[in-house]
């Protein structure tokens, strides 16, 4: 199955370990990623959307046009890119007046939004196109015994009428995917809480991150599993700052799903870039080595 991958800014530039993990694991799942030329920032669904929604939609539509011209569905690896591109695709394919306005601008660069492709977060491709069984079958080294506390993040699921991924209050998609690679899921109290990254107050995100991390620690999880680089940014760096500030050990490894999938498929910690994380992942690596 062929898809046009859209890695966005955060993964491409700041967290290339996530891109490496996706590319290497997708190959093992029989997913063909066809790289297209010319993508820009999605653009960012928080700050950029806050400036002018029509410009935001137009630049998003330009990215979608590139995939339309290639006749490929887009697969996104970041919840933020998923939000922008899915929202744009939804509004432009259901609101003809808006589409007309956007196309007037796109005409200047010789492009036209048609509404012929879909945008999907890669985890939905795993669940719906490839199937959980194929994910399970790709595993060579199950993660037996590793306890994962999931952090869903907001934009994979909401707004549900647009995202159409899962029940926004009782989702199961990530439980299914983490279980398929042999992880033990541990539920924690603040599992559904937002990471707070998009809030511009100083105090609110800090308190939220603190609560998520303490809830995770309490649950006995060995690591946090997530699917969004923005949430990762908040927790990986955030926990070090907060541990210092509160003089309390809030550190816990944060892993992107595809890094863990890579380890389960037999890739080395280096190949999925675990050494690039701020929080040490040694315990995970040791635990994995011990269980096999």
């Amino acid at each position: 199955m062929k898809y046009a991958p859209f890695f966005g800014c955060m993964i491409t530039v700041k967290y290339p370990q996530m891109e490496a993990a996706v590319r290497k694991t997708a190959r093992n799942l029989g997913m063909e990623l066809v790289d297209l030329e010319g993508f820009s920032c999605c653009p960012d669904p928080i700050f950029f959307k806050a400036t002018d929604k029509l410009t935001w939609l137009t630049i998003a539509a330009r990215n979608i046009c590139i995939a339309e011209e290639a006749g490929l569905d887009m697969v996104t690896m970041c919840s933020g890119c998923t939000a922008t591109l899915s929202e744009a695709n939804f509004h432009l394919s259901t609101e003809p007046e808006l589409k007309e306005k956007v196309n007037q601008r796109l005409k200047r660069i010789g492009r036209e939004y048609k509404g012929t492709i879909s945008v999907r977060h890669i985890v939905t491709v795993l669940r719906d196109d490839l199937g959980i069984d194929r994910v399970r079958e790709s595993v060579k080294r199950p993660l037996g015994g590793i306890k994962v506390g999931i952090h869903y993040g907001c934009h994979l699921l909401k707004p549900s009428e647009i995202m159409r991924v899962d029940d926004p209050d009782y989702p199961t998609i990530l439980e299914k995917l983490f279980s398929a690679i042999g992880a033990e899921i541990v539920h924690h109290e603040k599992q559904a809480l937002c990471c707070g990254k998009a809030c511009m107050s100083e105090n609110i995100p800090e308190k939220m991150t603190y609560d998520v991390l303490t809830s995770l620690k309490k649950s006995g999880a060995n690591l946090m599993g997530l699917i969004c680089p923005t949430c990762f940014d908040e927790f990986d760096l955030g926990q070090i700052k907060l541990s210092r500030k509160y003089n309390q050990d809030l550190t816990i490894p944060i892993l992107y799903y595809f890094q863990l999938l890579g380890l389960a498929q037999g890739l080395s910690p280096q190949e999925v870039g675990l050494h690039l994380h701020k929080t040490k992942t040694d315990q995970i690596v040791e635990k994995l080595a011990g269980s096999n």
Partner: peptide, 21 residues
């Protein structure tokens, strides 16, 4: 970091197109 992970160079974005939008 990208090189170390075996990833290609980051592609440039046609900013002239974006400016028009």
């Amino acid at each position: 970091r990208r090189k170390e992970l075996g990833l290609g160079e980051i592609k440039s974005v046609p900013t002239d197109e974006l400016k028009e939008l």
